[in-house]
Amino acid sequence: MNDRITQLQKIVKESNSICINSEFLDYEGIVSYYPEELIITVKAGLIIKDMRKELNKNNQDLMFFVDDENISIGAAYANGGQDLSDSVLGVQIIDGNGNLLNFGGQVIKNVAGYDVSRLLVGSKGKLALITEISFKVLPNFYVEKLVKPLKQKASSKAHKVIEQKLKQVFDPKGIFK
């Protein structure tokens, strides 16, 4: 087992309150990248610029519009966005109980279980600590025309109620602030 992951699990288990911030950025780097599979798995602290550099070496790129290349991929995932969500294939997370969980995977098609890896896109670090993310990537040629996504609509009351209940599923003690 990865030492840093064990350490992060311990931190989550022992805290009453965690704000996911730059302190976690040291969990970074590429876990696996198979250009012929069009799939990359990265640790959440990886800076987007460095991720794209690696992809560009193989004439590939991310499938979503990137506003600021200097933030981590985990931060972009937490901020959300539909285009980013479209390219997510899997996540590894530490939930509010300190459990290490995997959802989705490293394959393009996967309908086993609810789509938690896309559910947590836009969760702002309030549901779980995201440790690793797998993305589908594409050859440069196919991602040339990316545009900034439309501004999102405010949540309705019904959405907020569901979100609140889902927070309790992932973080029953309410430690992620």
């Binding site: 539909q82 896309r118 896109v121 309705s156 569901i162």
Partner: peptide, 15 residues
Amino acid sequence: ITFSRQDYGIGLLAL
């Protein structure tokens, strides 16, 4: 309840 790609917040449409 309606879920749309433009919704702010977590990915309920995907769920």
